[in-house]
Amino acid sequence: MSVLAIETLNVTFSTEAGPLHALKDVSFTVPERRIVGIVGESGCGKSTLINAILGLLADNGRVTGGRILFEDGNDLVGLDPTAMRALRGLRISTVFQDPMGALNPVISVGRQMVNIQYRSGLSKSAKLARATEMLELVRIPDARAALRRYPHQFSGGMKQRIAIAMALMMEPALLIADEPTTALDATLEVATIELLKDLQRKIGCSVLFISHHLGVIAELCDEVVVMYAGEVVERGDVRQIFHQPKHPYTMRLLECDPARQTERTRNLPTIPGEIPDLRARPRGCVFAPRCTLAEAICAAPQVERDIGRGHRVRCVKAVSPAEAEA
């Protein structure tokens, strides 16, 4: 059973310089009670993907194909705004990089946490008790007193934990976490990741975790989706991706992480070049212009292939472990 299944999703923005194909044939699933990480660099389409799921695409953006199936096969594409609003916050909740996006600066934390329970039939005191419980769960010291305080009275790390508490309070089926630890210091970042993992287990929701930080993805996620220039180039189990990456982009990206370089070097690996203009996508492999392994065959359109146990790669040259043996 999957909570979210994205099937050949295409999103196009109309711009003055012509249509911009921001997402091309994006497919992946978020199974129940799993954490799926999306990793990719700027321009890979992460934010467009989230906005498409939440029905919040900009006015000039449009889903031009594919389906976004949520829970019991509800297609979120073309869902009317009222129904979408009912899902958001209740069944799908979000945490963003800046916790102040979720917190109203002039309302006490307790009132905000009671307010978001407006759909539940609980009494006021029960709602307050629930809010206290959630703050304790995200390890806010002295939760009862914290409810009376205002967002600015908390540190950055605490604000993000409060935002997580609010996002999980209604026990959603899916939490979308968009770079939630990027603005935090390293010591707080690891603490937040551990907290998130813990809460996910307790509440039993699925998480779609977006980050550009490979280390965070490796540590937190069960499955990983690698995106490049609006396409899913590789996806699979976290170990498949990090131990046996098959797409040249994934391989190069992993190489680039300075944390991978255990030997001190003054010549760090890079991926020269830029992502292609999404208004004029190459017909073949989208990574080919920057790929050192590219051959003539890469100029043909690429299809996603399963190379074994759900490890899918969009590269003709990728071979399964069995093929490599032969």
Binding site: I193, G215, A218, R239, F242, R260
Partner: peptide, 13 residues
């Protein structure tokens, strides 16, 4: 020591 250990490394295992 804590700062050094707080860097998540790209290796799930």
């Amino acid at each position: 020591a804590a700062l050094l250990s707080a860097n998540p490394e790209p290796d799930p295992d």
